[in-house]
């Protein structure tokens, strides 16, 4: 990537240098004027909040003279983190989201990959239609998608429930065992097409000549897909996996909407919902510690996955 990004930046020898000062490009002030409009808000709204959250997470609120004394905030070391790790609700939210991710991410990416490969073969007609149909959910905000699906899950309104009952089934999409997978389905619906398009774009960039030798040797479309195409687009598959892991750990909107119609989703269903619930209870330092832990887990998992897979794939 760095290769591509810097290709255009090689400095062309300046001709004459009449209008240039010492031939080395624009002045520092000019460069700063290009960078500051982005970097100022970036620092203020990305870096400062991160630093602030980390700072808050090391504070505790104590009271002087028992329960009715005045409260004051002081340095508490790792107290907040100890509390996070002793919180059973935190662990169950992590467990839930782990189960969700282990099932939902591979299923979604597998479907996306199959669709991308099929769209890349001559076997298929109506390609534009299928591509648009799959990508359309990306235009739908997560909240709206969850509201739409919650109607399709609702025992009173859902045509899906009606149809399943007609063939003798008794589906309960909002029951205690099913509701996690109902939420997973909303995520799958939203993001499959997006991931599919990333993979499909990578497939389109492969030069056709690469397949021709294989075709002359009599390789089937199937073999070409799995033995040639998939390994080539491995970086895209890794990228979509990393984005999916990040997205899963941040899950909020979909379960929050389903919570409005199902009593089987608690206010601490996902780590993010827990952080929000704690912050709503005015325990900002604890909420900050939870946010930091979620961020660290996200970071470790996504980088760990990238490391692991890029070594394996020899990238």
């Amino acid at each position: 990537m760095t290769d591509i990004a810097t290709r255009g930046t090689r400095v062309v020898a300046t001709t004459g240098g009449r209008s240039r000062h010492n031939g080395g490009g624009p002045r520092a002030g000019t460069i700063a004027a290009f960078l500051i409009p982005f970097f100022l808000p970036f620092v203020l709204f990305y870096l400062v909040p991160i630093a602030y959250a980390i700072g808050q997470s090391f504070l505790v609120v104590r009271r002087t003279g028992g329960q009715y004394g005045t409260s004051y905030t002081t340095f508490g070391g790792f107290d907040q983190y100890v509390q996070v790790f002793q919180n059973t609700e935190f662990w169950s939210s992590i467990g839930r989201i782990g189960l969700f991710g282990i099932v939902q991410v591979p299923v979604m990416l597998f479907v996306a990959l199959i669709m991308a490969l099929l769209l890349d073969t001559p076997l298929l007609k109506l390609k534009a239609f299928f591509r648009i149909a799959a990508f359309m959910p990306y235009a739908v905000p997560g909240v709206i998608a969850a509201i739409m699906w919650s109607f399709l899950y609702s025992p009173q309104l859902s045509p899906v429930v009606d149809l399943l009952k007609a063939i003798g089934l008794q589906p309960d999409f909002l029951g205690p065992g099913a509701v996690l997978w109902s939420a997973a389905n909303v995520s799958t619906w939203l993001w499959t097409g997006y991931n599919m398009l990333i993979m499909f774009s990578a497939l389109q960039a492969i030069p056709q000549e690469l397949y021709e030798a294989a075709k002359l040797d009599g390789a089937s479309n199937w073999a070409i897909a799995w033995k040639i195409k998939v390994p080539i687009i491995a970086p895209s598959i890794i990228l979509t996996t990393v984005f999916s892991i990040i997205g899963t750990l941040q899950l909020y909107a979909e379960p929050a909407v389903l919570r409005q119609i199902s009593s089987n989703i608690s206010s601490t269903f996902t780590p993010n919902m827990l952080a929000y619930a704690v912050a709503s209870g005015n325990n900002y330092q604890q909420a900050a510690a939870i946010s930091v832990v979620i961020a660290v887990i996200t970071f470790v998992l996504s980088f760990g996955f990238m490391r692991l897979t890029s070594k394996r794939a020899g990238l």
């Binding site: 959250a53 808050q56 941040q250 929000y276 912050a279 900050a288």
Partner: peptide, 13 residues
């Protein structure tokens, strides 16, 4: 790689 949801609570504070 920083998800915007992770920033929302610190930003609120």
């Amino acid at each position: 790689l920083v998800p915007t949801t992770a920033l929302a609570l610190p930003l609120f504070l």
